[in-house]
Amino acid sequence: MTSLLLFGATEGGLFDFDATLPLMAVQVVLLTFILNALFFKPVGRVVEEREGFVTTSRAEAKQKLAQVEKLEADLRDQLATARQAAQKLINEAEQDSDKLYREALALANAEANTSREEARREIDSQRDAALNQLKSDADKLGDLIVERLLAAK
């Protein structure tokens, strides 16, 4: 009985081929077309669109990154030149102020010298005048003394 059931000598059995086979094949082919239209095509379109989107976004981002890096380098250059210019300006200003200071110092020195010279000259002249006066006074006094002494005699 078992073998009869298994090998389908009569009705049924495991290896009972009939119209199920071609109909199932047709069914699967139909399912293939339906799934192609409902599943594979739309999902594929969405997935590939996304892949394209990701690729283009990544390319764009890379481009932007390159741009940013270029700008950054430019900026760094500009900053360096600006810093150099500022340094130069500072140096120049320092030199200028130094020069001005020296000039002012020299001028002040010269002024001080001249006024000192003047003062000395004045002192000299006044001293001379005083000495002369003194000398003439002394002479006068000497004369007077001599006269008195002579008169007393």
Partner: peptide, 10 residues
């Protein structure tokens, strides 16, 4: 077996 043979023949 009908199903599997159908699939295999496809």
């Amino acid at each position: 077996i009908n199903t599997t043979v159908a699939l295999a023949l496809l």
